[in-house]
Design a protein around this nucleic acid. Structure first.
Lengths: 103, 103
DNA sequence: TCGGTAGTTCGACGATCATCGTACTACGAA
DNA sequence: TTCGTAGTACGATGATCGTCGAACTACCGA
């Protein structure tokens, strides 16, 4: 039950370039969309992706280090949640704009 | 005076991945910010950038092909304008969010 | 017509990146 | 404790990307 939170940048440490660069990759964008659809958080493995587990972990790390998502442990599972509040505070409208894209 | 418009994607041809990937580069983000400050358009060479002319042309091409800016000729000059309306229609709030970043 | 100016195109090069397989850690169940 | 599951870390590899200089095109003024 949400025992530990993996290292992530504070709100004031988040940089736009890192956020945009992280979002500019199809697989990562898919992950972000999946998280947006599940406000309660999603277990990494539950998102269907055309890559192996190690690549998946790689992308999740990039998203976490960019400040886009937060990950906490739950047994052997890792639950990821979109950092909506932080992103909205820093770049109001950005997430909404991206998620409103046709596909 | 504004004789020709360089090839660019129609609004419905613009893809989010391309837009985000284009914006996720420091030099290109600088260009976009400069264009946002000058709604009337900016001549490429007027933006101060830490790169050579050829690299500058390269970045402008990527931004144009992503659908972020529009370029028309004016004699030997090329005037670039941010495609605010198109971007706002496709991804409402995205530009505002990005431009509101501290730096 | 002849520069000169503004910008693009074309390789080329080095750096970064996405991907993978393998090995590893951490946890829960039997 | 032993096994299976969930996920990470570590190279390695091939592809993409940012950068540059040099050569080229287009336009304007003298």
């Amino acid at each position: 039950m949400a025992t530990k939170v993996l290292p992530q940048p504070e709100r004031d440490e988040i940089r736009v370039e890192a956020v945009l660069q992280a979002l500019g990759e199809p697989v990562r964008l898919t992950i972000v969309r999946a998280l947006a659809d599940n406000p309660a958080g999603v277990c990494c493995g539950e998102i269907e992706l055309p890559v192996t587990a190690s690549t998946r972990a790689h992308h999740l790390k990039i998203l976490r280090e960019a400040g886009i998502l937060s990950t906490h442990t739950d047994g052997t599972r890792r639950i990821s949640v979109l950092r909506r509040e932080d992103l909205e505070a820093l770049y109001p409208g950005l997430l909404t704009g991206i998620l409103s894209a046709k596909q």
